[in-house]
């Protein structure tokens, strides 16, 4: 019997797609609101009329007063409001507190729910919500394709601790310059903003260039390199999720040492040897790929140390046979 958990990876892609689609939809909804507020349908250009008509068709079943009601969902994953509940990225709160050298409690509290969720679920934001992750994963699939075609792309391994340095350096720079610098270099913040610029303001901004550079970095230098080695948000989430309650563990009695989990893990972790650590973003790709259902979510605060080779694999059987021979000889 296969476990239901192997379907989680598909669910995750649906979630990532929905978040991204929402970020694309929101600027159009904003445009629609402004057109409604202007009371001048006749004066719209054909393109604007198309936006108006499409958004009207989409929202008509849910609202009679789009100008007011569509304010319910605003913002991006960096900071936004959902039906009156204001939510912010913990990195936004940390960076802003450093820049302002002051703690503004109403703002800090907007990060409370994300922080609690991260303490329980680890780096799940990176795997399940981050709008950049969708693009980075597609980019990684493209890299795998190139690799199959014989191009040696994205092979380097760097030091994972670099991103903690980036986080610390960013905080220091924020304090010195009095500007929240993370907003300019944090892909999920960039993506939400740039989509809004492209749709509602006209043209991409500076962040789009930076994001393209990170895509190239992932493609040419290191697999998912930005998330693994540079991203300050990833660093913060890793630290917060270090003792997460929900983590993937390997059932050594089911493992057959096929090592597919290690190949599929885009963060270059080592599930095969029970090494997940704080960097694991609970993306469930390894659960989905495991042919014997040895990997599954568990509720534990720590990883198990290496449990030895999987009991369904050659190495374990050989060792067992050798052990049996020893016992007979004795």
């Amino acid at each position: 019997m296969k476990s239901w958990q192997r379907h989680l990876n598909k669910l995750r892609f649906v979630t990532l797609g929905l978040v991204f689609a929402l970020l694309v939809l929101l600027p159009f909804l904003h445009l629609y609101q402004t057109y409604v507020a202007a009371h001048a349908y006749d004066l719209l250009t054909p393109g604007e009329k198309l936006v108006y008509d499409t958004m009207e068709a989409l929202t008509a079943p849910f609202t009679d007063d789009p100008e007011q009601d569509l304010d319910a969902v605003k913002g991006t994953t960096w900071s936004g409001s959902l039906f009156g509940l204001k939510l912010s990225d913990p990195l936004a709160v940390l960076g802003q507190s450093a820049a302002a050298l002051d703690v503004s409690w109403p703002f800090v509290l907007t990060a409370l729910i994300p922080v609690l969720a991260t303490v329980l679920l680890g780096r799940f934001f990176c795997g399940w919500i981050c709008p950049a992750t969708l693009l980075y994963e597609l980019n990684d699939n493209f890299a795998a394709w190139l690799r199959k075609a014989g191009l040696p792309v994205a092979r380097r391994r760097l030091d994972r601790r670099v991103k903690y340095l980036v986080l610390a350096a960013g905080l220091v720079i924020s304090m010195v310059t009095g500007t929240a610098v993370f907003a300019a270099v944090y892909p999920p913040a960039i993506i939400g903003r740039e989509i809004y610029y492209a749709v509602a303001v006209g043209g991409f901004g500076a962040g789009a260039v930076f994001f393209l550079l990170t895509i190239l970095f992932d493609l040419m230098v290191s697999r998912r390199g930005f998330c693994r080695y540079v991203c300050p948000g990833g660093a913060l989430y890793s630290l917060l999720g270090r003792f997460r309650a929900l983590r993937i563990r390997r059932d050594v009695t089911q493992c057959n040492d096929c090592a597919k989990c290690n190949v599929v893990c885009q963060f270059g972790l080592d599930p095969w040897h029970d090494d997940f650590g704080q960097e694991c973003n609970n993306c469930t790709a390894c659960i989905a790929v495991c042919p014997t259902d040895a990997l599954a979510f568990t509720l534990h605060l720590k990883d198990i140390p290496f449990q030895g080779p999987g009991h369904l694999g050659h190495a374990y059987r050989r060792r067992q046979e050798a052990g049996a021979v020893h016992e007979e000889a004795a």
């Binding site: 960096w78 900071s79 936004g80 936004a92 802003q96 820049a99 050298l101 009095g178 907003a183 939400g192």
Partner: peptide
């Protein structure tokens, strides 16, 4: 400048 997080809301 120190307080704005550039969220664009």
């Amino acid at each position: 400048l120190a307080t704005c997080i550039r969220c664009g809301q």
